[in-house]
Design a protein around this nucleic acid. Structure first.
Lengths: 111, 111
DNA sequence: GAGTTAGTTTACCGATCAGCTAATTAACTG
DNA sequence: CAGTTAATTAGCTGATCGGTAAACTAACTC
């Protein structure tokens, strides 16, 4: 996968297990075992998913005794949302959609 | 990659070439060759990227003489944005961030 | 029909991904 | 210290990804 920030974030979100982990963390920090519990998957697999999320900046990890609690870091989602917001006008209404389309045509013909 | 709609959309966005193609299509429909022009990449490579975008529902393709014009279909971005909006409160302000964190702790201790 | 333009398909390649098992590290507990 | 709990690392596998070159299809043009 590409290594630019946006690609890494979108890539991290492109997996239902990882999205579910983020959803769980929205309720507060959790240990790796707690995060793994709902999934029919080994702990190393979860550990890898967490590493992907960490690389994307979507979680951070602490140290507390023998636990490494994970916490949600939503900041990268701001950049991702901002990128998508550029296209908002295209889905907000069919009117906008037509409007944008016509503007595109006008630009193409230099009028 | 997982085959659920959200994963396919996020996966399609996790590549700078594909995001650039979408940006180009925001200015209006374009042929495959026109889309390929800015990239130092062969046509089959672009063709594959377009297939990924099409599978995600982010573009549609027509037929006009010997051309297959691509057009932006931003609707899937609505669902993606909606999914992310759940986390908006986590990045909007540090106050909200603290607030949400405290709510999480309270939930954890059953108070 | 021959040639050209637009694009896709096929087959291949090396790299990365998502999962597993087994082994290892780190910290607590008796 | 021995044992347990929490989590990571290492090494393997099969599948997918992103790219290529070569061959092919489809439609237009002379």
């Amino acid at each position: 996968m590409a290594t630019d920030q946006l690609s890494v974030v979108f890539g991290a979100l492109a997996d239902p297990t990882r999205r579910a982990i983020l959803a769980r963390l929205a309720d507060g920090p959790a240990t790796v075992n707690a995060l793994a519990e709902p999934f029919d998957m080994t702990l190393p697999a979860i550990s890898k998913h967490l590493k992907v999320l960490e690389r994307a900046g979507l979680i951070s990890r602490g140290r507390e005794k023998q636990w490494r609690p994970c916490r949600l870091e939503a900041e990268p989602l701001r950049a991702a949302t901002e990128w998508m917001s550029r296209y908002r006008e295209f889905w907000e209404s069919s009117f906008d959609k037509l409007d944008v389309h016509l503007r595109g045509l006008m630009k193409g013909t230099e009028q």
